[in-house]
Design a protein around this nucleic acid. Sequence first.
DNA 1: ATGAAAGCGCTAACAA
DNA 2: TTGTTAGCGCTTTCAT
Lengths: 337, 337
Amino acid sequence: MTKKVTIYDLAELLKVSPATVSRSLNDHPSISEDTKKRILSAANKHGYRTNKFAANLRRQKSNTIGVIVPRLNSYFMSTVLAGIEQVANKVGYNLIISQSLESEKKEKINAKTLLNSGVDALLVSLAYETTDYEHFKKYTSRKIPLLFFDRVFDLPNCPTIVIDNRAAGYEATEHLIEQGCQNILHISGNLNRKVYKNRFKGYKAALGSNGIKFTMDNLLETDLDPKKVDDALDYIKKSKKKIDGIFVSSDNFAANLIKELKKSGFAIPEDLKVIGFNNDPVSEIISPNLTTIDYPGFKMGVLAGESIIAHLNGNINLQSTNSIVLRHELIVRESTS
Amino acid sequence: MTKKVTIYDLAELLKVSPATVSRSLNDHPSISEDTKKRILSAANKHGYRTNKFAANLRRQKSNTIGVIVPRLNSYFMSTVLAGIEQVANKVGYNLIISQSLESEKKEKINAKTLLNSGVDALLVSLAYETTDYEHFKKYTSRKIPLLFFDRVFDLPNCPTIVIDNRAAGYEATEHLIEQGCQNILHISGNLNRKVYKNRFKGYKAALGSNGIKFTMDNLLETDLDPKKVDDALDYIKKSKKKIDGIFVSSDNFAANLIKELKKSGFAIPEDLKVIGFNNDPVSEIISPNLTTIDYPGFKMGVLAGESIIAHLNGNINLQSTNSIVLRHELIVRESTS
DNA sequence: ATGAAAGCGCTAACAA
DNA sequence: TTGTTAGCGCTTTCAT
């Protein structure tokens, strides 16, 4: 029954012009309150829905924001997304979300699709693999706001939202040292990504300032997929010098690792202290509770959303803000004390 | 530099009509391979991007699928979404995702927004609160395919994707009984939602078939937010008859509950056996590992996506399939044996 | 305060 | 196989 009703129908019905209807619907100032009311109520009554394609075609904007993330189903990412969605929705923006599954190729395809879909802006957290950034040039050259969060890359005029991963890595490592660890293993994600690179840098720096020499043996680079926990376990068992502390770049991996370590007879924190990263809920479920770095995902999402929307609204304040650094926090729990 | 280039520009450039360009771009059969190639390469060279608004306006379809979920950031939901995204992306559909945050009001707003955004189809998992379904009528009356998953409601011609929650609840409960439990508490989500209602029914049925009388004391209805774990703990402690088994409708809640129970001196599974629901990764992190019902979220997402796309393509096979029931599985771990 | 009219860029029916 | 043409529904400039 609900046939599609257009502004022309409404116009005819009320003996006004389509322009007047359009203006009323958009609350244009130069329309008398009276006619506005008449039109609005008629629109309501007849179930008028604005056709966004037509409107978008006309004004060349879509009121949608594209998002590309490595994967949807991680605690951290879904929390960030929840934050983005919340602010976007509040101001009437839709979110088109796609996942790269850590593949550069898929990231490129997604970027292209979203461009074609006419997103007004793009929020990106990079795939592990990505080393080429051509696919984003199309955005910058068209002045489509582009913002990176978490897994970022510095492109001219593209704000980034991160935490100070180097400082966080430093604090995590120093905490282990303070707890008496002397031979600390760092289990890192892909070092091409600055997040992990910087945590690693912080780790090395902390060793340095405490007079501990770093050797490559003390670095284990993995994709942090819990399936790889066994490899890590082997690595730890086979280590020549006894490892007494581990700084893992992911709580999820750390929790799974602790589980296996315990099975293998390691006492935590007595034999071995472990610190994770993210403050994922598992960190409070695992026994012993995991010391970690709190990484404010929801807040990051909110900020990413707010920042890009401010950008879209031409709000210069945030536009000039080229990098937002969120505060992280060391959370000490049982696994290190 | 990249000005917008339209099919008209291309047409002029190659001395053909816009129609030919359009057809080539869409790989229309009645265009010679030769001109197709010429046009495609010219399009590439000049950085042509199709304007989806115009195309959508013309064809009255958007190639996007709307999704409304209670929240993005739960393990289960983000897994389902990952599944949906994977299939949608594969066949060139975009996903617009929004969250109701368990609020009926927000769900209604989202449904309206997505309708206005011209989604070709809508996938929904209902909010706790929702008891009125008027907002979906607009979809059905316009023949926009609508599919419910997980938290479903039976609307005419709307497929649903679920698991057999009653059977799962039955199995979970029977497992506890087999392990010797006699006084089993069920911690349920909002019983207005069929998922929880049916698990509860299964629970009651299992008690019945095993000659155990159900009393309302044995049901605790909550929103399954881990923050409410303390209430549950109190409830258990204050229970007159000693509770020796708990069937919780959520692994996450169960894991947090176990943690608190242990703190309060309960031995699990000796004093108290616990079974969860979902097979969330936490179930293998918590100690003791949590017995649970495996709920195939990713598969559910894939199926939801495939089903709705088949629908959109006019594939009758799936269209007639009004309800898909996925297989669940009891996974026995330490918390019950 | 309101109307007339010109497109936004694309697709598809109809013609050739 | 290719071209002509008429919109899709909306916004917005220019008139009135």
